[in-house]
Design a protein around this nucleic acid. Structure first.
Lengths: 158, 158
DNA sequence: CTGATATCATTTGCATACGAATGAATTTGA
DNA sequence: TCAAATTCATTCGTATGCAAATGATATCAG
């Protein structure tokens, strides 16, 4: 648009279209939600390329259990930002692979306690160094100072 | 730990545990992948609260079609960062709701052309102002300058 | 021209992710 | 104390998201 020789009418058209292009047009690729989704996709792909047999949510569950020890499924979900339905599936799959074990809470019979198995502990301790490398690689496009700024601002949004 | 009166042995233990806590401990909540996942979740929730009957990927498809006009399903997927299997599902659901229509490419019989229907055009034009508000609300925890910095760095990662 | 490659779309299988509904158990409050 | 509200876990339905396999079509190279 605006690349042709213009009559008076074309001039008006160009003005309208320029206004449309600069102010009214919606650029998906500039929206924070769209870029956030792509950045998240990139991180998941990097994670998969380094840790193929565990997903980021599964890793998060193991890492948190390693950090705090036995907890209820519900509490674990809160700590790793998963709703009850999602954490159920994650724990079921980790249980099926022998990385966690569940038991009933002695006094509060509603609660399902989750804990690492020895294999789970071995796995998470082996994988944590790889996870550190994934974090580094995810942030690799930024300088150290930029990465620090980015993490500070990202945390404000999360 | 380190809160009890200590013998020499306890002192050594405390040192070891302090080292563990400060250097060897892995803090999930500080990892970029985990925070990225939470920020993305927050945005999706904000989106849902404003635009309840369309998901961010569905909105992205409509917005891109509105921007560029008819394209192949595959090309659309590339533009909105979805693989072929995912974009298929998104388009199927938009088609079922009468927001897009598909047709066969005249010369290249492999391609499936996708375009907005009049209802789809009406919907996206009505929703774009809401999407702008969602972007603003997502970035609300940041100052204008911080938001600009954040978007610049986020784009580098995506 | 034709066999090897590449592209486009589809399908299947698996893994999040969340809303809503349900049931069991616990806690609260009048 | 006991009915109401809350919490914990499960289940169902729907929607991404991706890997891998498949089939149809198109392009390329010799």
């Amino acid at each position: 648009m605006g690349r042709l020789e213009m009559s008076g009418e074309d001039n008006l058209l160009r003005l309208v279209e320029a206004e449309d292009g600069d102010e009214n047009n919606y650029h998906l690729q500039d929206q924070v939600g769209f870029i956030l989704r792509k950045a998240h996709q990139r991180h998941v792909a990097l994670f998969a390329s380094h840790i193929g047999d565990l997903t980021p949510p599964q890793f998060a569950a193991l890492a948190k259990l390693h950090d705090i020890g036995e907890t209820s499924q519900n509490q674990l979900g809160t700590l790793i930002a998963m709703d009850a339905a999602t954490v159920k599936g994650v724990i079921d799959r980790l249980k099926a692979r022998g990385l966690v074990e569940v038991s009933k809470h002695e006094v509060d019979k509603r609660r399902l306690l989750v804990n690492l198995t020895p294999q789970g502990r071995e796995a998470i301790e082996r994988l944590i160094p790889l996870a550190r490398a994934i974090t580094e690689e995810t942030l690799a496009p930024l300088t150290a100072k930029e990465a620090a700024t980015f993490l500070r601002l990202l945390a404000k949004l999360a």
